[in-house]
Write a protein that binds this DNA or RNA. Structure first.
Lengths: 112, 112
DNA sequence: CTGTATCCAACTCGATACTG
DNA sequence: CAGTATCGAGTTGGATACAG
C-alpha cells in the first residue's frame, strides 16, 4: 500500500490514473513538452477553455510538482509555465502516445 | 487535419486524448494488458463501479477496436475481454506510465 | 495580461432493481 | 453470469463579469 496526498493506493500506477483522471492535465503537459508557455498561450491552444478552468488545472499541476510557475514583475504581467523535473519525466509517455496515435490514425482516420 | 469518428482533429495525439478523456477506459486497458478477463473479474477489479458503467466503457473500447469481446454459449454465460491488435499497441504507453509512477511515488509517496 | 468570483448546464458515473 | 433500465448525486468545466 502506498499513501499519497492523504489517499491510499494499491499500486503506483493508480496514482498516475488518479492524477490524470480529468481531460486537461495531460494535454497541458503535452503543450509544455518542449516549450515554456505563457498563460495566454496555453489559453489559446486549449480553446475552448475558460480562464477559471485553466487556472485550476495549472495550480493542480504545480502542487503536484509537475510544472513550474515563473512570475515576471512586468506590466502587463507575464507568467510562464514549464515542465518540472517530474513533468519532464512524463515525456516518454507523451512520446509513446504520439507513436500509438499515428499508427491508430493511419488505420482508422482520414486525412482531410 | 484528420477526420475520425465524424470529428476533426489537428494532430493525431488529440485523438488519444479524446478517446481517453474519461477515468476508466485506460484503466480497463491496464487490467487487460496481460490477461484475458471476464466481465465479472473486471467488475471486481474496478470497484467501485456499476455494471452499467462497465458495460458502457467496454462497448466504447470495442467499437474503437481496442478490445475484443468473446461470448461463450454456456450457462451461466461467459464473456471474455482481451486487447485487440491496437489495444496491444497501447502497452508501451502503459509501460512508461509504470516507470513514471514508480519514480514519482518513490519521491512523493509513502509506503504503508 | 493574469487571474477571481458566481452561476449553472452537461456529463459521468454510482445506487438500485430487474432481465435473459 | 452478463447485462439493461431508471433515477439521481456529484463533479467538471463553460459563460459571464470583475479585479490587480
Amino acid at each position: 500500500m502506498i499513501r499519497f496526498n492523504d489517499k491510499d493506493y494499491n499500486s503506483s500506477a493508480e496514482i498516475f490514473f488518479d492524477i490524470f483522471d480529468d481531460r486537461l492535465k495531460l494535454i497541458i503537459i503535452w503543450y509544455l513538452k518542449n516549450e515554456k508557455l505563457r498563460f495566454k498561450e496555453l489559453f489559446e491552444y486549449l480553446q475552448p477553455i475558460t480562464k477559471k478552468t485553466l487556472t485550476i488545472k495549472l495550480k493542480e499541476l504545480e502542487s503536484l510538482n509537475l510544472i513550474n510557475r515563473e512570475v515576471f514583475a512586468e506590466v502587463p504581467p507575464r507568467v510562464e509555465y514549464s515542465l518540472s523535473e517530474y513533468g519532464e519525466d512524463l515525456k516518454p509517455i507523451i512520446d509513446e502516445i504520439l507513436v500509438w496515435s499515428q499508427k491508430y490514425v493511419g488505420k482508422f482516420g482520414t486525412k482531410i
